[in-house]
Design a protein around this nucleic acid. Structure first.
Lengths: 123, 123
DNA sequence: TGACTATATAAGAATATCGCCATATAAAGA
DNA sequence: TCTTTATATGGCGATATTCTTATATAGTCA
């Protein structure tokens, strides 16, 4: 049966694009600015073809855009509101995760400013 | 390989919960208030077991909660921010859908106040 | 208890998604 | 042109989702 308006189908496709741990990580890196495939690969520690495949999916769903620059390709989030989306969902997780101390800590860690690699060793 | 932190996995599970047209429709009805399974079923025109199965998924991911009331079971969204999430994504679609006139119209129709069934016929 | 209603769950077939490996394309430099 | 580097894509086995059909559970009323 089914027969639902295309619009809901379209929305579902969009959420599907976010429904994978690798793609979430990709977006959480990309929301801080444009990145090359190499940089993304380094940040995630998954292999090249996997990163490329997930980027292809995000591209197909129009979540990210790619721009060629010489040999490398740089990716960026297409709509800044994707950041807002991740923030709202973070707030929801936060409320939901009252159980797991470990995940709660990880979540809090994420929401702090980008961990600005420490320059000097602590006193 | 893989080895991503549990947190991202958890987030992906959450988005997966939204990544289906039927579940999106369910949430878009539920965000306006508690509903029984029957009401949901009537609103979506999909059959009983399908609605129940999708509700089970939303329940498993803690997106909705169920409350028994006599013979019937009433469902509600657990976190009001889910509404905000749907709104942000709507905004993103809106920007994205500059191509499809049909979907654009459907999207606009959705964002108007609940269509409050007209009481008198137009003049 | 039996019949009826509302909802949930199980099992299976069809389909989709995922990760991995190999290979393809494309730019740049020798 | 040959090589190297950066990225994309095709094929495949493993796993996960989804719908359908049938059945199970639970509340209500007679």
């Amino acid at each position: 049966m089914m027969l639902l308006p295309d619009l809901q189908l379209f929305k579902a496709e969009f959420f599907k694009a976010l429904a994978h741990p690798v793609r979430i990580r990709l977006l959480e890196v990309l929301r801080h600015g444009e990145r090359s495939v190499q940089e993304l690969q380094a940040a995630l520690t998954v292999d090249q073809s996997t990163v490329s495949q997930h980027l292809a999916i995000l591209r197909a769903k129009h979540v990210v855009a790619s721009r060629k620059e010489g040999t490398t390709v740089r990716y960026a989030v297409r709509d800044a509101r994707v950041g807002a989306l991740l923030d709202v969902s973070r707030a929801i997780f936060n409320a939901q995760l009252t159980g797991s101390q470990t995940m709660l800590r990880a979540l809090r860690r994420e929401s702090r400013r980008p961990p600005r690699r420490r320059a000097t060793r602590p006193a």
